[in-house]
């Protein structure tokens, strides 16, 4: 007996952030380019900057650059210092540790950092 053809399925890897103790999917892994970031909106309208490093790990911190007030951290360049990944603000170049959100150039400044995970899911492609 032949089965009726199913809707085409595909496996996607989602990037999720821990927001208020719940995992929230912001994008798919393939939306990210290693060494760069993207901005995403959280349910409450807050903006996060999501990054992928060379080894394929995702990070997320608040998108607002505290030195200028502009929502641009997602557009900075990634780097690593002492094995820890950072992003340099595209405006005035201050660096932020991606795991903790701590500013490496001014110890009094920190932006929020979010825990991330990648999560495999099977999605039915909607034609």
């Amino acid at each position: 007996m032949t089965m009726a053809p199913m809707a085409p399925e595909r496996t996607v890897v989602r990037v999720e952030l821990l927001v208020d103790q719940r995992w929230f999917a912001v994008c798919e892994l393939t939306d990210l380019t290693p060494g760069r970031g993207v901005a995403a909106l959280l349910p409450d309208g807050a903006q996060v900057a999501v990054f992928l490093d060379r080894s394929g790990r995702a990070y997320a911190i608040a998108n607002r650059d505290p030195f200028t007030g502009a929502y641009v951290l997602s557009r900075g360049l990634l780097g690593s210092a002492g094995g820890r990944p950072f992003v340099a603000s595209p405006l005035l170049k201050q660096r932020f540790d991606l795991e903790t959100g701590r500013c490496l150039d001014d110890e009094t400044v920190t932006v929020q950092a979010y825990a991330t995970r990648t999560h495999e899911a099977v999605s039915a492609q909607v034609a």
């Binding site: 490093d53 060379r54 780097g79 690593s80 170049k93």
Partner: peptide, 13 residues
């Protein structure tokens, strides 16, 4: 110490 890492904002551009 920098090999296999992510580089930095000075050398990348």
């Amino acid at each position: 110490e920098a090999r296999e890492g992510d580089g930095c904002e000075v050398c990348k551009p």
